[in-house]
């Protein structure tokens, strides 16, 4: 391949490049990169990451140090003149010994697994549907984002009133259509309450998934699929090789983000159920809020926060393991 062919513009056709052509190009690129004009990779990386690192260090380092410090001390609120007392791992063991913490972790796990799975599936389905061209698609895509744009407290209010046993829309519809005979206590039945809260969470979180998949689907260009077809690939193989392969990185990111988010949910249950009935919707976020702000046990709250963080981290590392087996350079 002659280099001069490309010198006038940066037009290339990536699918059209033969293997040999790619190899030559790569070699040429390397030689240019290694010449003195190009800034070295790690320097350039540092430069690009600098704003982010400065912001994160500036705003989060201290909060981290502070909250880690709280984990290991008893603030001695009853004797402020004594000052904070170092108590080692007592806060951690107190949390780990608290049955209510474990119950909240279990509830959170259910909440996270179901809300993440459902929002991923629903989001992917919505993305595939809205990737097809049809009239008013643009408007539909914008409307799709509405649940996400709703402030949390309004979201909770809407679902609370919709699921209200006597004045709610859902029971109203179900009674009218004869599907149920007496009102269902969506938020007063311990067996249904968590499912109801999960529903509200799915509603607010699936648009994000849909949007990300939609964006990812755009980069799977028509040409890419055409090229594969010319190569003789069947439509199942095209889906497997191209679509799935390109969606995997996005899926990983979405899983990670959605999981982190749903493990930390607090506002929704605080506004909808306050953890009731009988603690059936008390997520860890609410448990920690109570320890700190209501019981003034900030050390315990911090220790619990980091235990929760540990759990999230395990999940996230697990995802990475499973979905990033192939080395991505």
């Amino acid at each position: 391949m002659d280099k001069s062919k490309h010198s006038d513009s940066v037009v290339i056709q990536k699918e059209g490049l033969s293997m040999r052509g790619q190899a030559i190009l790569r070699q040429a690129a390397r030689s240019v990169l290694s010449s003195k004009k190009m800034i070295s990779e790690s320097k350039f990386a540092l430069l690009l990451l600098l704003p982010t690192i400065v912001i994160l260090l500036g705003l989060l380092l201290y909060p981290f140090l502070y909250s880690i410090y709280l984990c290991f001390v008893d603030l001695n609120l009853t004797k402020p003149w004594v000052g904070a007392k170092f108590i080692g791992l007592d806060n951690f063991s107190a949390v780990l010994k608290d049955g209510e913490f474990w119950l909240s972790m279990e509830t959170t796990l259910y909440f996270a697994v179901f809300s993440v799975a459902a929002s991923m599936i629903l989001g992917l389905a919505a993305a595939l549907l809205f990737n097809v061209k049809f009239r008013l698609r643009g408007l539909g895509r914008s409307l799709l984002l509405i649940p996400w744009a709703m402030p949390g407290v309004v979201n909770a209010m809407i679902w609370q009133t919709m699921l209200h046993p006597n004045y709610g829309l859902l029971n109203g519809v179900l009674l009218k259509t004869g599907l149920i005979e007496s009102p269902v206590g969506w938020l007063s039945d311990p067996k249904l309450a968590l499912a109801s809260v999960i529903m509200a969470q799915i509603w607010t979180s699936f648009p994000f998934v849909a949007l990300m998949y939609l964006a990812a689907l755009q980069s799977i260009s028509g040409e890419l699929i055409e090229a594969a077809k010319i190569d003789g690939a069947g439509s199942i193989r095209i889906f497997k090789d191209i679509v799935v392969k390109l969606l995997v990185p996005v899926t990983l990111v979405l899983l990670v983000l959605r999981t982190i988010d749903s493990f930390r949910v607090f506002d929704l249950v605080f506004a909808m159920t306050k953890g009731g009935p009988a603690n059936s919707t008390q997520l860890s976020g609410l448990y920690l809020y109570k320890q700190g702000f209501m019981f003034s046990d900030f050390g315990l709250g911090s220790a619990g926060s980091y235990i929760l963080t540990g759990f999230i981290l395990v999940f996230v590392l697990l995802y990475m393991r499973i979905l990033r087996q192939k080395d991505r350079v």
Binding site: E100, D189, G276, P277, A278, K290, M294, F295
Partner: peptide, 18 residues
């Protein structure tokens, strides 16, 4: 508050017939 929080749950355990 700590007591009340536990007490609320136990009362609800009775009210939900658990």
């Amino acid at each position: 508050n700590e007591w009340s929080s536990k007490f609320q749950v136990e009362l609800q355990n009775a009210l939900t017939q658990k």
